[in-house]
Nucleic acid binder design. Sequence first.
DNA 1: GTGAAAGCGCTAACAG
DNA 2: CTGTTAGCGCTTTCAC
Lengths: 335, 335
Amino acid sequence: MATIAQIAAELGLSKSTVSRALRGLPGISAQTAMKVQAAAMRLGYVRSAAAAGLSTGRQHAVGVVVPALNRWFYSGVLSGIDRQLADLGYDVVLFDLDRNGEAGARLFARAMLRRRVDALIVVAAAFAPEELAEFALLEIPMIAVGPPVAGMRSIGVDDAAIMTAATTHALELGHRALGLLGGYDVESRSVYSASAREHAFMRAALTAGARVEPAWMISGGYRSSAAMAATHELFQRPSHPTVLVCASDEMAFGALFALQRLGRDVPREISVVSIDGHEYAEAYGLTTCEQDPREQGAQAARIVVAEIEGAPAAAQPPPSAFTLTVRRSSAPPAR
Amino acid sequence: MATIAQIAAELGLSKSTVSRALRGLPGISAQTAMKVQAAAMRLGYVRSAAAAGLSTGRQHAVGVVVPALNRWFYSGVLSGIDRQLADLGYDVVLFDLDRNGEAGARLFARAMLRRRVDALIVVAAAFAPEELAEFALLEIPMIAVGPPVAGMRSIGVDDAAIMTAATTHALELGHRALGLLGGYDVESRSVYSASAREHAFMRAALTAGARVEPAWMISGGYRSSAAMAATHELFQRPSHPTVLVCASDEMAFGALFALQRLGRDVPREISVVSIDGHEYAEAYGLTTCEQDPREQGAQAARIVVAEIEGAPAAAQPPPSAFTLTVRRSSAPPAR
DNA sequence: GTGAAAGCGCTAACAG
DNA sequence: CTGTTAGCGCTTTCAC
């Protein structure tokens, strides 16, 4: 593997000149710049990240902490982060919390980061005060994507607002008996979204004078399979709502499947509305409030990179956008 | 941020002694070892990956190339890799091909790796000869997970064998009119799996003397939504098979949904069998040949780490295991 | 425009 | 058991 010194020797130049030429810094004649580029190409030169990092203190890498990978929201955010960072010339060092038990989590910051990254993006995770203290010790830009995290800026939709939009859609269609498919996300270390959404649902429904029975608030734990089981059980009972508001599309798919198995006509007998904007929502005809996890991730990446490169720390950004997309899963209640 | 030199100064020791103590190397008195640990803790010492890497040439990091993140197989493999590497003390540097157009792909190896990683794991991707040459230039251990890749070892199920198992199950139930839901994966850069599975299906069906019409071989592009549309169309026609063999569970879910929408009873009218072992298969009652992407990823990680640490290069490992799990989506054909 | 020299923080001989 | 001495490959003053 060629080094800068070898190129320099080959060309009878000094290391510093080669270094400058390679990085396109000013103060180098066009001629030598060309020659250096050519030699670098010919010798298959690749800059050593370690050496450059040691010298500058910049690793050109960002750590990303995710609670799990097999979920639409998390993988979407990660994907957005990755793409944006690649464009900005940064690498992604992945840290999947899924792998560590409770024990490991507390220690991971220092062990994992080893000053390998210039910034940290945390996806949908809440941390204990000690853990946050560990992070702060790293003194690098940090931001969360997903629900608000105490002691950290975060990017994400306003959970209450998005759930209110979904519920309001149901109410405006004329539904008066509403069910909620929610529950706590077992993977995320945050419970904020779940409870914020539940509250917003209740508030919107009750404010409109609609009927909500405790038995109609079921839990799918943000997983399709559990959502399917819970829905299946609810709609076998004699009393059930005319619309099911789901806290995530993945749960909504489970619900749709369960309703079909039970032979319930969606939306004639039962409407389903949801939150997320999953790529499959269109094919499944699901009415949903669409958010954009990739863009949220990309935004987080842009913010931390700007700060790495010297920009003043950005404040808490405004909530991310969402839009209601109405499809065939929702309609006025049968009468 | 404390350095090894500061700890040494603080304790009146030399840097090397501190370095050894910190790494638990032999030849250090228990006393000093303790003192060093304590001081490191107190000063909040974190080892600099860049400095250690520059010195040893080992980055303690492995690059992982994935075609996309929002798919069961890819995220499962990545998850398995990540967990195993974490246990072995290595970091994961992620590279999502999704972000680069065709243009970027050719250049990525050198640009991305910047000698930042000690090994490379490539998930479900085929590369052009020039690209493989670029990789080879890195002279680091490499392995693929997924379908065979020319010029690289790979870990994964035998595509023909797993499809044969799925098809054979259908045949053994007595089906004589078989359909295939396959197609080419738009995200993977490999076409191997798709065609190997298609071949195996045809071969098994025809060997058994079963009926397969060209119109029954439909394409879902390995995506649930496209699979749903294709299935919907097929089963609206007057002539259709009694069983649909799917090349992936994600497609099978789309098929199940389409069949339900059409009011077809699964499995009484139509059976569905598939390949993958997706976490939702149980809830959806899907008969499927289960493989284990996490374990495949973990195995790849173990192999490259062993080689980084000096083991002789391992040969091509045998195909990964799979097992047929029969659930309620498959049954003998109606007669 | 280019070069010389110091240094980033760590590891690895080689001495003692 | 511990210390000394060189680097690893790059960047960055400061000279010329």
